[in-house]
Design a binder for these strands. Structure first.
Lengths: 346, 346
DNA sequence: TTGAAAGCGCTAACAC
DNA sequence: GTGTTAGCGCTTTCAA
């Protein structure tokens, strides 16, 4: 492992001063074409590559052209699409992107964020976990820009790109109500995830509009995996009065519900996923657009990095209820077998 | 935007020398607890964060604790899972990860790789696109470690983590042959992707074992999207002698085949995907394990970074043929209408 | 058009 | 236990 080449090496090789090399590398004027050619040649011969860290050190105040992006789980297609959009936006601006997954752990998030800041990132796109993010404040005071996406951050006034989770969840529930469903179950991922609790609020609100209350038996929260969601659905369907419809709070719980194989119960899930339209029945969902969210967050971040100091903005992107079949399974058939008494009551 | 805090600021605030601050920050011995406490306090008050770039500059020869990872498309679940595994391995070693997508463009790859090298990455995990990668050689000569994953790299002797694409594709085709299929179509993504052409070779080889040759009419290569794959399948099925089985060369083409809605034709795809087992019929696949591939690549890279100078290694991870139903659709029904005799009739 | 000197924030090596 | 000096690779400033 030989040591890395420096401008000194190039200068020596080309028989010029280090300063001339610098000028050539940075395309600055005032170098004879002939001299420049000699330098270029030396650069090629030695495989020299500018050390941006050293460069950055001297050009104090200039951006490092690095941003950090911290998502919940990069392996989740939703966050992967979001990350890809951020990366595209960054590349267009000649930025590189540090990536990390918090895995919904505040400690891990803090650790990764610290590592990003130590590399002097100009900005951070953050899918924050629950908990206090006061530790971000001092970095922001020193000039690092932060934009939250998918979730807002606790106790910190920063730009955010969100969707209206309550309304979107409400749309899903309303859709089920319109099909005649009254016994609608809620399948929730971890409760401490902001999006999930918002969706629960939306779920309850729309039931409330109809004078209904969520049946505690039909509300299953804190499901941490696809398998747990599947088990929960199996239990629900084994109840004396099973639900006629399910609202699943995210992609994982939706897949769990599908795993459980209860095809006759109506289902609307939050988040779209590949091939949802090819299942039997095709799965109805409320969808958000992760690429658009990532793109918007990047846009916001780069405008801040470029000096935009206007008050923090909140961007609410739209969602869409996509009816495909699973949400249009009628309530009647099941309701009849379900409990004549209960049905009569409604 | 105030300027960032430095050790100087902390030293002044704590009334000590900058060297004492450095010792405290780096947990070096030989500082009175009392002094250390004063420094710690100042650090907290100022929100000081060590500048790792400057640190790295002085500790020449020491690793920067940054690696780069360049995949084809981060939004593709296969690469997302791979990236996540790399990230986990990196975090355990207190490394951060720069991410990029090449989008199958050599220019874009070169651009991103250059940006990574300029940041002095200790290593690079690369899913190389087609074309010469000579430009990597000079960086490697200067000590940057490179590991290729999913695909080998042209004209460069580096560590690689692959699967035996020929054999895996052969397994799929053999499986179809065992079900009696003889008219098996090949649906291929871009031809210049190494994995795809390898799979085609495997496809032909196993047909050859049976004394068969691929029917040019049934070989569709260069399909660049799910939609193109769907259209190709539709065309195939409209042939006078349609195939009785399809072998799709990756997840995108598999999904395209599913989109085309020809449920009666047998199908085995390369790469598993979410809910493949829940489709009608459930989709049979040959699967590789992207997380394992990413993990193995990271392992290899970090052992190189730690000084392992043994000759380049090639790691071949295993694949698995997963029969779920779509690959077990019998050939008979269709074959009848299909046989040479019947062909004459048509 | 080119170069010499200073210094970015930090740490290695050596004082005290 | 603490401080001083020098210098990492680069760019800024100023001189030639």
């Amino acid at each position: 492992m030989s040591t890395r080449r420096t401008m000194r090496d190039v200068a020596q090789e080309a028989g010029v001063s280090i300063m001339t090399v610098s000028r050539v590398i940075n395309g600055q004027p005032g170098v004879l074409p002939e001299t420049a050619a000699r330098v270029e040649h030396a650069i090629r011969r030695l495989g020299y590559q500018r050390n941006d860290a050293a460069r950055q050190l001297r050009r104090r105040g200039q951006p490092t052209q690095i941003i950090g992006m911290l998502v919940d789980d990069l392996a989740n297609p939703f966050f992967a699409a979001l990350a890809r959009a951020v990366e595209d936006a960054a590349r267009q601006r000649h930025y590189v992107v540090l990536i990390g997954s918090s895995n919904d752990s505040l400690d891990r998030e803090r650790e990764v964020v610290a590592a990003f800041f130590a590399r002097q990132v100009d900005g951070l796109i953050l899918v924050p976990v629950a908990g206090s993010h006061r530790f971000l404040a001092s970095q922001m005071a020193q000039g690092t820009k932060v934009v939250c996406v998918d979730r807002p951050v606790d106790g910190l006034d920063v730009d955010r790109v969100l969707v209206d989770n309550r309304r979107a969840a409400g749309d899903a529930v309303r859709h089920l109500l319109e099909q005649g469903h009254r016994r609608i179950a809620f399948l929730g991922d971890r409760d401490d995830v902001w999006t999930i609790s918002e969706r629960y609020v939306g779920f309850c609100a729309v039931l409330g509009e109809q004078g209904l209350e969520p049946d505690p038996q039909l509300v299953r929260r804190g499901l941490r995996s696809r398998a747990e969601a599947a088990a929960a659905v199996a239990e629900l369907m084994a109840l004396p009065q099973p639900p006629t419809a399910l609202f699943t709070s995210n992609d994982l719980t939706t897949m769990g519900a599908i795993d459980s194989g209860h095809g006759s119960v109506a289902l609307v899930g939050f988040d779209d996923f590949a091939l949802a339209d090819k299942l039997t029945p095709p799965v109805s969902v409320v969808t958000q657009d992760p690429a658009a969210m990532g793109g918007a967050a990047a846009e916001l971040l780069f405008s801040r990095i470029s000096g935009d100091t206007s008050p923090p903005r909140e961007l609410i992107l739209s969602t869409r209820m996509v009816a495909r079949g699973s949400g249009e399974v009628p309530a009647t058939a099941v309701t009849a077998a379900d409990s004549p008494a209960a049905a009569a009551g409604q």
